[in-house]
């Protein structure tokens, strides 16, 4: 997994790329959670994420819940077909912010 972060005002956009599985969830959290904790509105661009498993979904849930707790939000952008399918399989399309 690789990533790039851009900032515009209070919005941080994290462009994730590659496969997100148990092996890289710590790395993904290290990128996303400090932005959430800084109360940024975090946009996760998932266009180039070809694979995500339950560990990756857990990162999405954890960051979403932390953002809610801190009064900000995490919005999932440009979700790839394969990731959307896993989100729907987990019945999270009404829970997470899909933008």
């Amino acid at each position: 997994m690789t990533y790039k972060v851009t900032e515009e005002g209070n919005i941080s956009t994290v462009f994730l790329q590659g496969e997100i599985d148990m092996d890289v969830t710590d790395k993904a959290k290290e990128v996303i959670m400090p932005l959430v904790e800084a109360k940024k509105e975090v946009h996760l661009n998932l266009k180039d994420v070809q694979y995500m498993d339950s560990s990756g979904i857990s990162v999405l849930i954890e960051s979403h819940q932390k953002a809610n707790e801190l009064g900000t939000k995490v919005i999932l952008k440009d979700i790839s077909k394969s990731v959307l399918k896993v989100i729907m399989m987990a019945k999270l399309e009404q829970v997470l912010n899909l933008g």
């Binding site: 498993d53 339950s54 979904i57 819940q65 987990a90």
Partner: peptide
């Protein structure tokens, strides 16, 4: 809804 516990569900 909470992190974890989805692998077996999948």
């Amino acid at each position: 809804v909470k992190p974890g516990g989805l692998g077996t569900f999948f």
